[in-house]
């Protein structure tokens, strides 16, 4: 089934139209969640502080979003893209699920058959994640008092070092040469000014990291 079947435009046209409608609905719903919280509880964060809290991560994640859209869209096909980008967890779940389903069915991405198999795979994957999360959240709501017990406080207080220790190992082992400059910068900054907020550290780290990586890439050191 490796050959692409030529068909009329109807499915393609419909999937893009419907996909856009669902995507706009998803944008409204995801932004509607904080809006509902603010309206219902009557709490509005001051705009200046919100922007200060939002900018540093946007600086890193919005360019990543562009690369992800350009990379994953041809891989997942139209239906898979509209569904996958709404349900999230792309690189850790949806993309591998779609690719392995296409491999097992013996079809290629970017063909009519690949489009169908990928959409089915991402749909099934989203449903399963949903079932697991809903049942897990129901179960965990009984465990909330335990989660908030004083003995576990230091555990949750160290969530960030726990995430970034593990992520650090992943990225350093992937490409240790890229990691040297930003790590050196952070150790230096920490020694000089120990209490700088991450809102300043993130753009500094990202700019130095990208700049040095670009120079090394141009000099064929990567």
């Amino acid at each position: 089934m490796n050959t692409s079947v030529r068909t009329g435009k109807s499915y393609d046209e419909t999937i893009h139209r419907n996909g856009r409608i669902w995507m706009i609905a998803a944008i409204c719903i995801t932004q509607g969640v904080p809006l509902a919280i603010s309206l219902y509880f009557g709490v509005w964060p001051p705009l200046g502080k919100l922007i200060a809290g939002l900018l540093p991560t946007m600086l890193v994640f919005w360019p990543i979003a562009i690369v992800e859209v350009l990379t994953f869209t041809p891989m997942l096909g139209s239906g898979g893209t509209y569904l996958g980008f709404v349900t999230g967890n792309l690189s850790n779940l949806k993309v591998p699920a779609a690719i392995s389903a296409m491999q097992q069915a013996g079809v290629e991405p970017s063909t009519k058959e690949g489009e169908i198999i990928s959409t089915l795979a991402i749909g099934a994957s989203s449903l399963v994640t949903n079932v697991v999360l809903v049942s897990g959240v129901l179960l965990m709501s009984y465990l909330l008092p335990i989660l908030e017990s004083p003995a576990l406080k230091p555990a949750f207080a160290n969530l960030l070092p726990a995430l970034f220790g593990a992520l650090g190992v992943v990225f350093i082992s992937k490409n240790w040469k890229i990691s040297v400059a930003p790590l050196a910068l952070m150790i230096g900054l920490f020694a000089a000014m120990p209490s700088l907020p991450v809102g300043i550290l993130i753009p500094a780290g990202a700019l130095v990291s990208i700049g040095v990586a670009r120079i090394m890439y141009k000099r064929k050191m990567l």
């Binding site: 070092p161 970034f164 890229i178 952070m186 907020p197 780290g205």
Partner: peptide, 10 residues
Amino acid sequence: MGLISAFLGS
């Protein structure tokens, strides 16, 4: 890596 190093630093 920039992001990770920022959080490692903090």
